[in-house]
């Protein structure tokens, strides 16, 4: 059934991504591919993987199915501009149109934890769900002829063959910077909910009305003053005495000549 569950449980499993910490290393995307290429939606196929101009599919460039994509943005102007690494995957929305537009019932939202999944045995590969997703989270598998998407590692988070601390999505367990968190965002007392409250975590494109579950933690304000990062006051005074930049305008004679030559 592609109607959304009317008796949705209070459990909303999702990710919290800290944009202040993410270093843009793509490890989460790589481990996602690694786990999921033999997981619930296996395999995650690639086209022209070793060439940028092969005509294998009558199309240029390498492409394939990935559930997680890492973008890098620049925001602001001049000195205040910030570089922000931005991992993007399915947000497991509460009211996802990608589910309701599905004509076959292949796309569904789980009642018990809110995870949005695709049943590859029912999918006809019409791609309409990918059109309905504002976040570009669904990717079509050209080889298998079906749509694929982030499963929140449904085959890992409940896997009793794994140690308890490993029962988190692959992207979370692999992040070397600790920028990714996993938990129940429907429970206000959970660690992730607390983190979101503390850091003013936000949802992407709220104006679309899809009510995404995943949250993003904004980059912290830039710290430029000594007291911002707990340095002693006296260091602040010292900082003021350091010349803002070196100048050679008063150099004359041999040094002046050297300066001119070296500045060429």
């Amino acid at each position: 059934m592609t109607c959304l569950p009317t008796t949705a449980g209070s459990k909303k499993l999702g990710l919290v991504i800290d944009l202040d910490i993410c270093v843009g290393c793509h490890a989460c995307a790589v481990n996602c591919k690694e786990w999921n290429t033999s997981g619930h939606s296996a395999p995650l196929t690639d086209w022209n993987a070793y060439s940028d101009d092969a005509e294998e599919d009558g199309d240029e460039g390498a492409w394939g199915v990935w559930f997680n994509r890492i973008h890098t943005y620049e925001a602001g102007e001049g000195e205040d501009a910030r570089t922000v690494h931005f991992p993007r995957s399915c947000l497991h929305c509460e009211t996802p149109d990608c589910v309701t537009v599905c004509p076959t019932g292949a796309s569904y939202k789980r009642v018990e934890d809110g995870i949005v999944l695709v049943n590859a045995d029912l999918c006809i590969g019409c791609k309409l769900c990918s059109w309905a997703c504002p976040y570009g989270a669904r990717e079509y598998d050209k080889t298998e002829g079906v749509m694929k998407k982030c499963t929140l590692c449904v085959d890992k988070i409940y896997n009793e063959n794994l140690e308890e601390q490993d029962r988190v999505p692959a992207c979370v367990s692999t992040c070397p910077a600790g920028a990714r968190h996993f938990g129940d965002l429907g429970d206000p007392d959970s660690d992730v909910s607390q983190l979101v409250a503390e850091r003013q975590g936000y949802e992407l494109m709220p104006e679309m009305g899809y009510k995404p579950v995943n949250r993003y933690l904004p980059p912290r304000p830039r710290r430029t003053k000594a007291e911002d990062f707990g340095a002693p006051e006296r260091l602040a005074d010292l900082a003021l005495r350091v010349p803002a930049g070196e100048t050679t305008s008063d150099a004359s004679g041999l040094l002046g000549w050297l300066d001119t030559m070296l500045s060429r």
């Binding site: 240029e60 390498a62 994509r69 890492i70 973008h71 943005y73 993007r88 079509y140 949802e203 104006e207």
Partner: peptide, 30 residues
Amino acid sequence: SGTATGLANLGTVRLLEGPTTSETYVMREM
């Protein structure tokens, strides 16, 4: 791009580097 990334309060949001060197499914389709 500001609401899509939620970074609007930092200023205009521009793509500095895409996730891939060639086009993804989403770029091809949309």
